[in-house]
Design a protein around this nucleic acid. Sequence first.
DNA 1: TCACAATTAGCTGGTATCAGGGATAAAATT
DNA 2: AATTTTATCCCTGATACCAGCTAATTGTGA
Lengths: 209, 209
Amino acid sequence: MIRIVITDDHPLLMEGLKNILAQQDDFEIVNCYASSSDLFLGLKKDQADILLLDINLSDSNSLDIIEELIHKYPDMRIIMLSVHNEFAVINSALQKGAYGYIQKNANIEEIISGIEFVLQGKKFLCKQTKSVMDKKSQSDLKVIPKLTRREKEILVEAASGLTTPQIAEKLFISPHTVESHRKNLIVKFKTSNLTTAIKLALEYGIIRA
Amino acid sequence: MIRIVITDDHPLLMEGLKNILAQQDDFEIVNCYASSSDLFLGLKKDQADILLLDINLSDSNSLDIIEELIHKYPDMRIIMLSVHNEFAVINSALQKGAYGYIQKNANIEEIISGIEFVLQGKKFLCKQTKSVMDKKSQSDLKVIPKLTRREKEILVEAASGLTTPQIAEKLFISPHTVESHRKNLIVKFKTSNLTTAIKLALEYGIIRA
DNA sequence: TCACAATTAGCTGGTATCAGGGATAAAATT
DNA sequence: AATTTTATCCCTGATACCAGCTAATTGTGA
């Protein structure tokens, strides 16, 4: 029996997944969690062969916990579930060690065959994800940039519509400092203005709307 | 029997919905569609009492087809399904005649009780949606602004990172004209800069990322 | 403790954006 | 046919943003 664990905070989708996977004789759904904290707790008791992991948990950015999961449970293979489909996100997930990437609007057959692929040690991408990876140069970003604490703060404030002087006032720092972070953000996102960087950060789930 | 039609382009979620609703004795799932065009075709043959309608169909903006649906099938009550939860979106849907608004990460019980509410002629909002409506002043926007063709074009180009002169060159118009549209957009979105307007438009599904 | 990263702050100069007006011709609606 | 909407263009002045540097403190990990 293939032990499967699902982590997603959408009950409806979870229900769909459970029903579909339960129809496969060799699949056993060990547990379902709605948050990363529950996932970590649960894994201590019941390990799994396959983890279906929502990339947009309200709990935490799933990209950040992939490495930790693999380190703790090296035999468990992770398949990411996502509504979005951005080159940098997919690439980051795979680089961090995920075995598969499936968009949530994928066909049912695709999901099952995806799990089987991954069990055989092959990496799997669903159809839509594949086409994104093929187009590739959509974005110049190969990997999601790593932001510092302060940079993320400035990005969030800027995304909420504040100007440089307003951000400076709010964070009790000089406008020049805000400008410095701003410039670093533009460089890290390889854009020519912060607006585009904000849009990317939203797409990539680095900041929330 | 209550006749239910589902329109959503996420097979997994559809599967979940079908399974949950099929467990109710008095519910009958007449048909499921993945696009608005299929929905319109299907309704010609089989009418329904309840329509569960995804707000983000790849096909079209569902907000725009609510009125048409109600006009053609005045007895059918529409419940919107959405991943997002913005005051202006919810309000717009309700004003256009939707009877319910349920977030896709809602509990299973909520969805069933939502349908029952709506059948009794009551409007229904899921828990998360309700809290958004209560907070209200999150955004000053009560309704999603109606944009002209040109305004939408300028917004899309600006969202892709182009500056005013670049947009002007691309669309073969004067930078002054672009500025005018820009100002109108800022007014319509009740923001102080276009960046925030772009963010709102992305959230509201007016433009795509 | 010794690099190295992160945070802070400053400078110049050029460009874009925003607020505030006003104006005209072509479509679309009524 | 008359009115409204849409799209086009222009102006000024203030402010914000971006590119390109430099550089002094904090921390923090090796």
